[in-house]
């Protein structure tokens, strides 16, 4: 079981790195899905089956598919890949990487220097999560609902194909007909 966990973790990390370094966006998205699936495996192994299911259904199944749809809608070609290659190679990305690496080392140091204990290992059934969610965190649920509502309306409003409207003051006399 422990071995499985480590393999899943490795896959998740490697897939993440692949996401970041791809030039073709569809490839990147597929690696992202792999990363999410590996994460789901980790969740399942540490005793959170409900969240593992959510990860697969919502994250990998819905959000990533949304990405894929949009990419398909934009109808990108080979040119885009070429451009990504140029951008990725020319611009110096050592400094951000170095910065992040130092930060990672420091946070790792902080984590390691703290106390540690093995996982409890207890399976947390979905029923328990649901009960907790709809009792203690009810207000959070409401807020999340409002957020999703705003997201839906916002997405609809922003993505609508707008008619090109010229303000009446900006119109010239002849162009009115």
């Amino acid at each position: 079981m422990t071995i499985l966990f480590y393999i899943a973790a490795l896959i998740a990390i490697v897939a993440s790195i692949m996401v970041v370094t791809r030039t073709n966006i569809i490839h990147a998205l597929l690696y992202m899905v792999i990363s999410l699936l590996a994460t789901a495996v980790m969740f399942f192994l540490i005793g959170a089956p409900f969240i593992a299911a959510m990860e697969i259904i919502i994250y990998a199944g819905a959000i990533m598919v949304l990405f894929v749809f949009v990419v398909m809608m934009l109808n990108l070609g080979k040119q885009a890949v070429e451009q990504e290659k140029r951008w990725l190679s020319t611009e110096g990305w050592y400094f951000p990487s170095l910065l992040s690496l130092i930060l990672l080392l420091e946070i790792g140091y902080l984590i390691v220097s703290g106390q540690t204990a093995p996982f409890n290992g207890r399976q947390i059934p979905p029923a328990e999560v649901g009960k907790e969610l709809y009792s203690t965190y009810l207000i959070g649920v409401e807020l999340a609902a409002i957020l999703l509502m705003a997201g839906i309306i916002g997405a609809y409003h922003l993505a609508r194909r707008k008619k090109y409207v010229v303000h009446r003051f900006l119109k010239t006399e002849g162009a009115e007909q």
Binding site: M54, I58, Y59, A62, I63, L66, F67, V70, M73, L74, A144, L147, L148, A150, G151, I152, G154, A155, Y156, H157, L158, A159
Partner: peptide
């Protein structure tokens, strides 16, 4: 998860626009 979903929806809408 909720936040990410909302964020992605709005973000992708912006990209389309």
């Amino acid at each position: 998860l909720t936040t990410a979903a909302a964020e992605v929806a709005v973000g992708l809408a912006l990209i389309i626009q």
